[in-house]
Amino acid sequence: MTPTTVLTVAGSDSGGGAGIQADLKVFAALGAYGTSVLTAVTAQNTRGVDAVLPLPPQTVTDQLDSVLSDFAVRAVKTGMLGTPAVAGAIADAAGAGRLPQLVVDPVLVATSGHRLGVVEAVERLLPYARVATPNSAEAAALTGAPVTDVAEATTAAKALVAGGAEWVVVTGGDVTIGDEAVDVLHGPDGTVVLRGPRVSTRHTHGTGCSFSAAIAVRLALGDPVPAAVAAAKEYVTRALTGARTWELGAGRGPLNHFGWPA
């Protein structure tokens, strides 16, 4: 049976925990065929980002044209865009209806704290997003208001939907709410608060990339947005749990995308 094709538009991670590399792992783990468009090359590992080389917008567009001219892409996710010019090229493709079921992960800062994007680049894509997946810091940067609890996350999600995204899920993995990881989803059907166990682990590198990639796969397979988001949250929880005892790298390690024995 021919697998469903999903596309990721993002930067690379030489450590393999986030970006294009993480997205392709998620696609494979969830049964989709992964294609990719590279926006930037980074030198990074579990300790941090050492260098970033954004690619020219034309190089990004050439990759995108090659993939879309040959593959029946059912869903697309974006991650690190690098520059407003690259974001503009991707936004032009989205505006032309070429990027179905678009999931926008507004990557602004790496887990290590290194800045990887600018707000203006993300804002170019939000009006075309079927789902946007900011964490609390990204939601705060995009709305200009603090996001430290469920009420503020709900306000931010509503503001970003008002700004053009169809659905927004503000992820709460980096907000301390007892022993739960709480995400807030808002869209045409209202607001849903998704609760799950907080996994105690240092292996959190690429969590946001993996979450948005999983949403894209589930949308490509036909799930409605709330079901896709819930399935992605469950997948990431399993991936975090499976990597708790790993010793990959000296910093924030990657997730266990394939459920390898811990």
Rank of each mutant, 00 (worst) to 15 (best):
T8I: 01
G113V: 12
G79F: 03
G34N: 00
T78N: 12
E152P: 03
V147F: 01
V217Q: 02
A141P: 09
V122K: 04
L126N: 01
G117I: 01
V119D: 00
G79W: 00
V26R: 07
A129Q: 00
A157F: 02
L160A: 09
T78G: 03
P261H: 06
S66Q: 04
L219D: 03
T191H: 12
K158T: 15
V225H: 07
D92F: 05
G11D: 06
P57F: 04
P106C: 07
L142I: 12
R238Q: 05
T5I: 15
A22Q: 11
V131D: 04
A231V: 10
D92W: 02
V104W: 09
A213W: 14
G251W: 11
S136R: 06
A181T: 10
V150P: 00
A51N: 06
A89Q: 13
S66E: 03
V6H: 06
T154G: 15
L102R: 06
A250H: 11
A141E: 10
V86Q: 03
Y235C: 13
V104T: 00
P57H: 09
T111C: 08
A18I: 06
E138Y: 03
L219Y: 10
L38W: 11
H186V: 09
A22R: 04
G206M: 05
R74C: 02
T42C: 12
L255K: 10
V109P: 01
A165C: 10
A28F: 11
D23R: 05
E138R: 02
G97N: 09
P224V: 15
T35S: 15
G144C: 05
P134K: 04
P54K: 04
L240Q: 00
A72F: 07
L24W: 07
P54V: 13
V192K: 11
A156K: 01
A214P: 11
A214C: 09
V169K: 05
P57S: 08
E247P: 04
A262Y: 14
A141L: 13
S210W: 04
R47F: 13
T191L: 07
S210A: 15
S200A: 15
G253R: 01
R198M: 09
R252Y: 11
I90S: 13
